[in-house]
Amino acid sequence: MTDRVQNVAVLGTGVLGAQIAFQTAFSGFRVLAYDIDEKALTEARERFERLVHTYRAEVKGADADKTDAALTHLTLTTSLAEAVSDADLVIEAIPEVLELKQRVFGQLADLAPAKTIFATNSSTLLPSDLVDSTGRPDRFLALHFANRVWQFNTAEVMGTPATDAEVVAAVVAFARSIGMVPIELQKEKAGYVLNTLLVPLLNSALALAAGGYAEVEDIDRTWRIATGAPLGPLQIFDIIGLNTPYNILANGSAGDRQLAAWLKHNYLDQGKLGVATGEGFYSYA
């Protein structure tokens, strides 16, 4: 069963969804990438073209032939039924909204073949939050990627108590086959390993900026100088894209919702969503 994944559907072509789809296609798999309308697919095509240039510049062996081949392995569609009709694995990478994810998995339960494994790339939700909507608890788990998947290539694999051990093994093998380092969690943990470590840092930086305690540049400079890290937390936010932390914070505690409101007023409402739009906490050429 560990080599059973051949056809992959990726649901959502935002910043990380597009990266997951492209990395999978770059590794030789057939990928159907789904999003809700033609506007989203047009933006996805632009993301894939940018990824072609990024891979040629940053990834060893990513010459023109291999990156062009990756594009031929990718099919874009606005039909959820088409995307999953022959999928061995579905990777959900839609916005971080519980009700939305539950609704989509409910649709997948009726549309996908019995063979299909379902995976969520949710950053903060537990698989158990979604499992009842999937209709296949034994073939459902979390598969979490870090942004810039070709560089920061961890793939955290986290099942529920109902996930079949062979399904976990199949997804671990798939992750390894697309160049990721699988990190298998032994039990459910909100935030997995990566975000359990990262989110408190990011939210602390956001609170410092929102509270007017220090300038954005100084918050990041402090972290880089004091720890030797290559990026500051607010630079990381820009890479992630500000929509994702906004969606998470908007559904959190009262303090989180205050940070979300500040982020929306000062950045999202101004079209400053991070690197993808050319401006977030920083401006990009």
Rank of each mutant, 00 (worst) to 15 (best):
A142M: 07
L197A: 09
R176M: 04
H144M: 01
P127C: 06
V171I: 13
V157R: 04
F174Q: 10
R148S: 11
D164N: 15
A165C: 06
A170P: 06
K189W: 13
N147H: 13
L194R: 00
G159Y: 07
S128C: 10
D132P: 00
L130H: 11
P137W: 03
A165L: 08
L185C: 11
E166W: 08
G179D: 08
V168G: 04
F152Q: 06
F174H: 14
Y192A: 00
V168R: 15
S177E: 08
Q186G: 12
A162K: 15
L130E: 07
M180V: 00
I183G: 02
A165Y: 05
L185V: 04
V172K: 14
V131Q: 09
L126P: 07
P137H: 04
D164C: 08
T134M: 08
N147K: 06
L126M: 13
P137K: 05
D164T: 05
N147R: 07
T160A: 06
K187W: 14
A165M: 07
H144G: 01
Y192G: 03
Y192K: 02
V149S: 03
K189S: 14
M180E: 03
V172T: 15
A170Y: 04
E184P: 07
D138K: 11
P182N: 14
R176C: 00
N195M: 01
I178N: 11
D129T: 05
L143F: 05
G191Q: 03
L197V: 13
M180Y: 00
D138W: 03
V168T: 15
V149Q: 02
V172H: 04
V168M: 12
F140A: 04
G159M: 09
P127W: 12
T160R: 09
A146Y: 03
L141F: 09
I178H: 10
P137D: 02
E166T: 14
T196N: 07
W150A: 09
V168S: 10
D129G: 03
T154F: 02
S177T: 11
K187C: 11
A162Q: 15
V172W: 08
A173Q: 09
T160V: 05
L185M: 15
D132M: 08
I178P: 08
E188A: 12
T134W: 02
G191C: 02
M158I: 01
Q151A: 14
L197M: 14
D129M: 05
A146R: 02
P182G: 12
A173D: 07
D132C: 02
A142S: 15
V199M: 13
V149C: 02
V168K: 15
P127K: 12
V181Q: 13
F174S: 09
P137M: 02
G159R: 08
D138T: 11
E184S: 13
G179Y: 10
A146L: 03
R176S: 14
S133E: 06
R176V: 01
F152E: 03
Q151S: 13
F145P: 01
L194D: 01
D138Y: 02
A142F: 06
P137N: 04
M180G: 02
L185E: 10
V193S: 00
L194Y: 04
Q151L: 15
P182M: 08
S128R: 09
S133W: 06
G179R: 09
T134L: 05
W150D: 14
